[in-house]
Design a binder for these strands. Structure first.
Lengths: 211, 211
DNA sequence: CCCCAATCTTGACAGCGCTAAGATAGCCAC
DNA sequence: GTGGCTATCTTAGCGCTGTCAAGATTGGGG
């Protein structure tokens, strides 16, 4: 019996990550199974345990790879435009497009409860924080001359993150279907999202839309 | 052996829903187990199957109860203030506070993938759409005199929903901890959220914050 | 060439969702 | 009351899951 194919010589770790993403892409995150990942990768059920402590650790590795990839996307987006507000917008759009084009990554990144104890990842989500820092810095770029702890900057950071994440989550969950927004295509929705803001928030100038 | 206690006489359905929420509150959604719910309710493993087709159907019932409860919260919020923009703000805040105070409900409502086939619930999420409709109508109230399919209204509906949902999701996932926003308390964050808007979006008047 | 450390497999256990078959409780007709 | 009917719950078991202990296999360094 020639088992040479089953020996990955250190490459199994990455193979498991990739197979895992494929599996999530097919069956969703609730269909993600360590046994199935192992089977699809062509190894035994116990093989993954020599590279990951448990299922959670594999998921965390997948998440980390996703954050790293998103960081690259951000860099690419930043390099394509000039002005601060264009750069912020580019980053926001990159976040949403990453969620749509690399759904399995996003699905796993959005479920820290599966691999983090009590919400904090014991410093394991360093890449995630680096990505957040890029967003924060892009926002700060729009307020040149102010300190980075300026409340208005904090506001805009929160706003930007909440918007792109909220939109991505709702879109991927299909929550927009079956509503008045469901008839719009993804491109229209993204345009709408980056234009919006008037009604819900009280704008700095104190104006309120129509009353 | 007196099994009288184990007979719920039709009340088992609701008992399972409530026990399920308690379980999610303790162990999170990934710790939600039909067997454990049955055990905690004091019945056998197979008992739930006489009230729910499968695990998904119980989750869907829990979700429906949550949407119904959120609808009540919206009504309460609407009745407390006068002006359209106050009413919209009240609804938005009610959404977030519901997510925080009734986390188990929100957790289940945010996972349609667990009980919906292909994102659509086969008309089972009627209550959810009714709640969305309340939000939409609250937004439309801020644009009196315009048609309900006005693009700017669509914009604001999307914006409002994305904001309150995105914030709730990020907060519950603990994604704000470990960032510059993590030092702020929940009340400060909510205030910040409802004040924000300037940087990310291009406002209708064409102004861009600072450049 | 041989041994060692890295890597993978086999076999097993408890817990999971789910089902078929049988037992029990309460209620209605009589 | 009593007999039986229906709703309700239980017991037993299937295949699947995550995880671990023990053993087998591989390739590289002495």
């Amino acid at each position: 019996m020639d088992r040479t194919d089953n020996y990955h010589h250190g490459a199994l770790r990455d193979a498991l990550i990739n197979t895992g993403l494929e599996l999530i892409s097919e069956k969703g995150i609730s269909g993600f199974t360590l046994r199935e990942v192992a089977k699809r990768t062509g190894v035994s059920t116990a093989a993954p345990y020599h590279h990951f402590k448990d299922k959670a650790e594999l998921l965390q590795a997948m998440s980390a790879a996703g954050w790293s990839m998103l960081g690259e996307r951000f860099k690419g987006a930043l390099s394509e435009v000039e002005t601060p507000s264009e750069r912020l917008r580019a980053i926001g759009e990159a976040y949403i497009r990453f969620a749509i084009e690399h759904t399995p990554y996003f699905r796993v990144m959005s479920r820290p409860d599966l691999y983090c104890s009590q919400g904090s990842c014991d410093g394991g989500d360093v890449t995630g924080r680096a990505v957040f820092e890029m967003l924060r810095s892009a926002v700060a770029g729009c307020y040149s001359g102010r300190k980075s702890d300026d409340p208005e900057i904090q506001e805009s950071v929160l706003h930007a993150w909440v918007m792109v994440h909220g939109f991505s989550a709702l879109w991927l969950d299909g929550s927009l279907r079956g509503t008045s927004l469901g008839e719009l295509g993804i491109e229209e929705l993204i345009k709408l999202l980056f234009r919006s803001g008037p009604c819900m928030t009280n704008r700095p100038d104190g104006k309120v839309p129509i009353e």
